Simulated scan of single mutants.
Amino acid sequence: MPIDRCFWLFPFFIPIFLSLAPAIAQTLDPLPVREIAPGVYAYEGAIALMDHANEGAIANIGFIVGDDAVAVVDTGGSALEGQRLREAIRKITDKPIRYVINTHEHPDHVFGNAAFEAKDATFVGHKNLPRALAQRKEFYLQAFKPMIGDDLIKDVKIIPPTLLVDIGKDKETRLDLGHRTLVLRAWPVMHTDCDLTVLDEKTATLFTGDLVFFQHVPVVDGSLKGWLAAMDELTAIPAKLAVPGHGKIGLDWPQALADERAYLTKLTKDLRGLIAKGDDVGQAAKEAGQSEAKNWQLFNDYNPRNATAGFAELEWE
């Protein structure tokens, strides 16, 4: 048929094109996850501050596939990253996403939750997580808007967990994915006051959340003393492989903790020495932990605030 005689068909095709447009627009590249153990997938976030260029994708996140269902462990630093994580899951399996586990309240771990809100998944977290999210919700949305941009923040929803895990080894929660059990443990105040770890018993793979940092300098938003005090309990978790909250994924356990323990120990020792000399918090922010600078990325972004928080905690010992 001559081209000029086909023009009359265009009105019939326009509704079809319009109906397909949303589907085309919603097609996203799956997040590039890696299978680090059978059925255990993780994405290694950038060691960087959240910004528009990295789409907030700076935390390590992942998912675990059982015979019957899937559990997500953290959802990333933007709704877009959460959507890309969902696409990665669907590329690998069509099993239902039964659980969305948040390891703590920080935006780089929870801003992607909205991607899983309508999927009949149960959101899971530390018993303190709903309160922490409620207290910081407005601050997070306002503070991170200029960092990641309006387009990445507009679809973010702060979704609290409904299945809560109490603190302590004797209060562990077990989730069944079908011949695959996850052991969730809530911790006392450490990195934050709502830290949770996730152990896949089948492969002895541990998602530590931000209780473990590797390469990225640790961030103290809870208790320096509490974090150090719980180190031995952390090392006792019967894992072989670890996914830290930041840095290289698939680390040997418990060796993955060694660098972090050294940093926190040195920072604490320096702060106590400065306090004993009568130095103020400003001096502590400049000096404490400086010998560790060569071992960590983003050191100057976070060490001064760690020193400031630690000083406030230790000066009244």
Rank of each mutant, 00 (worst) to 15 (best):
D94I: 09
N113H: 09
L152F: 08
A134G: 15
R131N: 12
R185A: 07
D155G: 06
R136V: 02
I148S: 09
E117Y: 05
P107Q: 02
K91M: 11
T173Y: 01
H109L: 15
V189F: 04
D176H: 08
K119N: 11
N128I: 04
H109A: 10
F116M: 10
D151Y: 05
K169I: 11
V183G: 02
P130Y: 06
Q142A: 15
L182F: 11
H104C: 09
V198K: 02
F144R: 09
R90V: 09
I167Y: 01
F111H: 02
F144D: 12
G168T: 03
L141P: 03
P160L: 08
P146N: 07
Y140A: 11
P107R: 02
P161W: 01
P130H: 06
K145Y: 02
V198C: 10
L152C: 04
V189T: 15
N102C: 10
V183A: 13
Q135R: 13
M190W: 02
L133K: 00
G125I: 00
E117M: 08
A132N: 11
A118K: 12
T192G: 07
M147E: 13
F144M: 15
L196G: 09
V165G: 09
Y99T: 08
E105H: 13
R174D: 08
A132L: 12
P188Q: 09
M147P: 00
V183M: 08
D166G: 07
V124D: 07
V183F: 01
R136A: 13
Y140N: 09
L199P: 01
L184D: 11
F116C: 08
T162G: 12
H109W: 02
A186Y: 00
D195I: 04
T192Q: 04
L199C: 05
T181A: 08
G125T: 00
